[in-house]
Computed example of a mutant assay.
Amino acid sequence: MNNLLKQVIDENKKYTNYGQVASYIPELKNAKRSDLGICIIDNNNKIYTAGNYNTKFTIQSISKPIVLAMALMDNDWTSVFSKVGMEPSGDPFNSIMKLETNDTKKPSNPMINAGAIVTTSLIKGNSLEEKEERMLQFFRRLANNDSIGINYEVYKSEKLTGDRNRAMAYLLKNDGFINGDVEEILDLYFKQCSIEIDCVDLARIGINLAMYGVDIESKERLISEKVSRMIKTFMVTCGMYDASGEFAIRVGIPAKSGVGGGVMASVPEKMGIGVYGPALDKKGNSIAGIKVLEDLSEKLELNIF
């Protein structure tokens, strides 16, 4: 498997030349465009790696399915989905348009920024500090890595340049989809996006989702089976922004991308995959990372459809 991963990384490295690192968050411009790495953890807890698999990067939108799991475990489902929808938007991840034009005005799904701000607002806690600690502990437990923390340089960069997210949040507050202090909710949202991980962490979270919420090592249930199924379904339908349909056809694996260059994939009952390639396509997905997953899906027959 390690040889196969090295081959796939080497064959797809050229695609990094066709993408660009994210620049709208200034700190993300520091990423090395040519980086490309992967980790796979299988259902026997075996770890396989290749390329720049241990390079640290911020999780960004890959945090969205994890925080959605928290929101669903903290709240009644009816309440959660009265505030955020279940349908693909067909629009860019940071679009604000449908908050005004939809009949309901609620965000289309939890994988776009507006929907994720709603789910972040639903995390339970008596203070911002308590919510942040609960969130971090959940990520650490899912990744089996107690050293996971927040990259505060990226967090500050996101907070300084987050006016579009700020506009969404105030619209959501005005229309009754979030309660509480808007700036506090945004602070937690910017921090969740700035959690720093690597491909191994993503693969570990991916395999725990693949095993329907049961930790591959301890056999402890971390997420209910029903929630883990829902999370993977959202990853299939909405996880790759407005390229989710094409990805489902070409690759056929539940996956979630982030503008930090990461992609987390979860093959039910088989494996978790973490990919890193900060050169992005025009829709905000890792351009070489998608090619890597497409090759692996074909070579290992991973397509769930």
Rank of each mutant, 00 (worst) to 15 (best):
D198M: 04
K159D: 09
S286L: 02
S23I: 10
D215L: 08
Y18H: 12
M86Q: 13
E87W: 05
V259T: 03
N303W: 01
G258A: 06
Y15I: 10
I41M: 08
V214I: 15
A116L: 00
M230L: 14
G239I: 06
W77N: 13
V154N: 07
F93R: 00
Q60R: 05
V8C: 07
Q7C: 08
D42L: 03
I62K: 03
N102Q: 12
A243M: 15
F81W: 13
S108Y: 15
A116T: 01
Y48H: 12
I185Y: 01
T161S: 12
I197A: 02
G180W: 04
N102D: 15
P268M: 10
F57Q: 08
E183V: 05
K131R: 14
M86I: 15
E294K: 12
G272I: 11
G51F: 04
S82W: 06
I205N: 00
M235D: 09
I290K: 12
M264V: 14
K32P: 04
N179Y: 02
F139P: 05
N145F: 09
M135Q: 01
S266A: 10
V200Q: 02
N17A: 15
N102R: 14
F177L: 11
S297K: 06
K29A: 10
K56I: 05
G180V: 05
M135Y: 00
I195F: 06
K232A: 08
G261M: 01
A203D: 12
G289A: 02
L296N: 04
